[in-house]
Design a protein around this nucleic acid. Structure first.
Length: 336
RNA sequence: UCCAAGAUCGGUC
């Protein structure tokens, strides 16, 4: 059973959730008894496959073998229900739980947030007897993502009054709220707060800072953050390239792309949207077409409607209406 | 061996 668990977990966590479910089926077929560790892995795999019915079936089986009481299994099941959009069933599982821990409550809060039910999430949140940093961050993130930045900060204030220390996730959510507000001063305050409290400028925090500074109008601060970051990932590079392009520094955006390739970060479709946008701003028709072709030829990325949109725009601005029309006719995606 | 929260995807309308 131990070995089966390891294998199921490995597949569930490495982008092969259907193989994990297959292994589970095989396990039962060979009469290997699953234990309490098996079920959360399998249900997680069901979540990743959006196989909500299979997840419910696994749950039923867990109950049958007497493991229906397990926190981990029940919490994972709830998480699956909410993330697959089945709010009612998620709540039903929660209501039926005889004992709940803080993770159960927080899972419901973040599940309702994921379903867009901020009112319901808030209600559950207020009825919690204890809240940790994850519970608070789930609410803050919900408000930040749903264009309610003031409430995000109101919860942050309450959280501090209750002496709960924010973590990196909290700060990233607050930066999203700052970006929403367009408030450079508040964003800078969060940045200083992070530095004062000993937070490393990690990949996530750094990328959120670059995005915030750029969208709040301070490209220079974004560049400083980018240059200081000890580690960067694809998203970091995309954020910086996008920012340069948006601020009319398209040439530098293209140069930065060259650096990105030099350090062997593989660009994605978003990188090329950023590059084509940079070309649009600088009227670089020839370069844009070069990148458009290069994207597919060198990286095997199929152009999306956004890429075509950039190309059409740049052709039109250059007065090359025939080229624009030809391109639209050749599209293999639906025009928007 | 197990559970919950986070970032980049433009301009325009």
């Amino acid at each position: 059973t131990f070995t089966w668990n390891i294998m199921i977990r490995a597949h569930a966590q490495n982008g092969a959730p259907s193989d994990a479910i297959f292994l589970y089926n095989l396990m039962l077929h060979r009469h290997v008894p699953p234990d309490k560790f098996t079920f959360p892995f399998v249900i997680k795999a069901c979540l990743l496959c959006h196989a909500i019915d299979k997840g419910k079936e696994v749950h039923g089986y867990a109950i049958k073998v007497g493991l229906g009481w397990d926190f981990y299994m029940q919490n994972t099941l709830m998480d699956m229900c909410f993330k697959c959009g089945d709010m009612e069933y998620g709540r039903k599982v929660f209501d039926k739980m005889r004992v709940r821990n803080i993770v159960s409550w927080t899972t419901v809060v973040s599940g309702l947030v994921a379903c867009g039910d901020l009112v319901g999430a808030h209600e559950v949140f207020e009825s919690m007897s204890a809240r940790n940093v994850v519970s608070w961050t789930a609410m803050i993130n919900g408000y930040a993502k749903n264009e309610r930045p003031y409430e995000a900060f109101e919860f942050f204030r309450r959280m501090q009054m209750e002496q709960v220390r924010p973590n990196e996730f909290t700060l990233v959510s607050l930066l999203v709220a700052c970006t929403e507000l367009g408030s450079l001063s508040l964003g800078t305050w969060i940045h200083n707060f992070a530095l004062k409290n000993g937070f490393e400028i990690s990949v996530h925090l750094g990328t959120a800072l670059i995005d915030m500074y750029s969208k709040c109008g301070s490209l220079d601060d974004a560049i400083v953050v980018f240059d200081k970051m000890p580690r960067r990932n694809l998203a970091t590079w995309n954020a910086m390239i996008t920012s340069l392009g948006v601020h009319g520094r398209g040439r530098e955006a293209l140069e930065l792309f060259g650096e990105m390739e030099k350090v062997n970060v593989r660009p994605d479709e978003i990188t090329f949207i950023a590059l084509l946008c940079a070309c649009v701003h600088e009227f670089l028709v020839y370069e844009a077409y070069g990148y458009f072709k290069y994207m597919t030829k060198h990286y095997g990325i199929a152009p999306m409607v956004e890429h075509y949109g950039c190309m059409v725009e740049i052709f039109c601005r250059a007065g090359m209406l025939d080229e624009a029309y030809e391109l639209v006719k050749s599209m293999d995606v639906e025009p928007d």
